[in-house]
Write a protein that binds this DNA or RNA. Structure first.
Lengths: 208, 208
DNA sequence: CGGGAAATGGGTCACCCGGCCCATATGGGC
DNA sequence: GCCCATATGGGCCGGGTGACCCATTTCCCG
């Protein structure tokens, strides 16, 4: 669940995180009070909280939660003051809004797994984030080759004919069909359409 | 194209806007300099610019562009000073990051259509935004029949074979193929895979 | 009432797709 | 040095797919 008074940021972040196959945003709140209210009816595994919010701010909300749910603070300005305030309020991690989506997603996975990030030094943090880097794909999808992922992501963007795939990859049509056959088996599907749908579901439709 | 030094905001906004069927984010820049560089190789219809960025800020970037591309300023803090600075630099619209995604999307559509928002009073602004409220679906997609949408949404959920589609709809395989042919024509695609990808992009994969 | 759109269904046919066998080169790991 | 995974490619074949004709019925709208 996300709590941030900047709607554009919160809604954008929701879409971005939702597009990660293993993450789901279950709610967005505009201030600390709404966050607490929403959490009463909607359980969440991790919460992302902005510190500066009108009404009940992030700090107060975190204090009220008393660490019931692991919370990541996502703040505009990074300073020692805000960081220690977040730590004192029970946050398990602290990110600037200048962080990348990639790192935040990794942090969410780490926190959901029970890791506390806020006390780590930089090297340790990098290590933990790297460990939770890529989304946990389905067992089948996990064993996809790089080339297979490349073809799959093209499929998911509408490049569907054997001919065009072969031309864009500079390989023969036969090789494309071989890769596709391998993809079908690994994803347990039986044609390109199902493979494309599954690829999009897995978040493999990213741009190059 | 988006220019904002807060990666989380920019990437989140990218995903959110990309999920609008009629909008596409063609690039993200972290400062004014990168924005100008990117625009040299990648044309854009509208740019979203943050005012506060390290290095070359939004104001300077807008001055360099000299109004070549309609620009919406999306700023954290709203004040008379920033607003008039944005206006002076050639921005055609001004939004707080507390605005809703809905309104920003409407504003982008309006600006892309040539409307200047920044000089409007509140009532006029609401009127313009309302006029550009819902996404303009592809001319083809708009004219899809109910049955076609039904088939398309099944496609988008992985029901790809003519046989299964016919069985689930209690109609003959021939009718399914007829509907599909009609769908292909309206969506300007040539096979089920592209239709499924397009259906998902249009948000037609809803409803379990 | 009349026209048009939508849904249903038929036939034909070239061609592509997916399943099945196979081979070769190139790596990296044990 | 040997093995296995990966990427590349070939041939074959049955069946599915998409493009092009077509007809019928229903129903809504002007």
């Amino acid at each position: 669940m996300i709590a941030d008074d900047h709607q554009l940021f919160a809604e954008g972040l929701r879409d971005a995180l939702d597009s990660q196959p293993d993450l789901r945003v279950v709610g967005v709140a505009a201030d600390g009070g709404e966050l607490l209210t929403r959490l009463e009816t909607q359980p969440a595994d991790v919460i992302l909280v902005d510190l500066e919010m009108p009404g009940i701010g992030g700090i107060e909300a975190l204090r009220s939660l008393a660490g019931d749910i692991p919370a990541l603070v996502v703040s505009m300005h990074v300073s020692d003051d805000t960081l220690s305030a977040a730590r004192a309020a029970g946050a398990v991690g602290f990110f600037s809004k200048s962080a990348s989506l990639h790192r935040l997603a990794a942090a969410i996975r780490a926190v959901a797994a029970g890791v506390t990030l806020i006390d780590l030094d930089d090297d340790q943090l990098e290590e933990v984030l790297a460990a939770h880097d890529r989304p946990q794909l389905d067992p089948g999808a996990a064993s996809l080759t790089e080339r297979e992922i490349e073809i799959l992501s093209m499929l998911a963007r509408g490049v569907s004919s054997t001919e065009e795939l072969a031309e864009r990859l500079f390989i023969s049509q036969k090789t494309v069909k071989n890769h596709l056959a391998s993809i079908f088996q690994k994803l347990s599907v039986s044609d390109r359409t199902q493979a494309a749908v599954e690829a999009i579901r897995l978040g493999l439709a990213r741009r190059p």
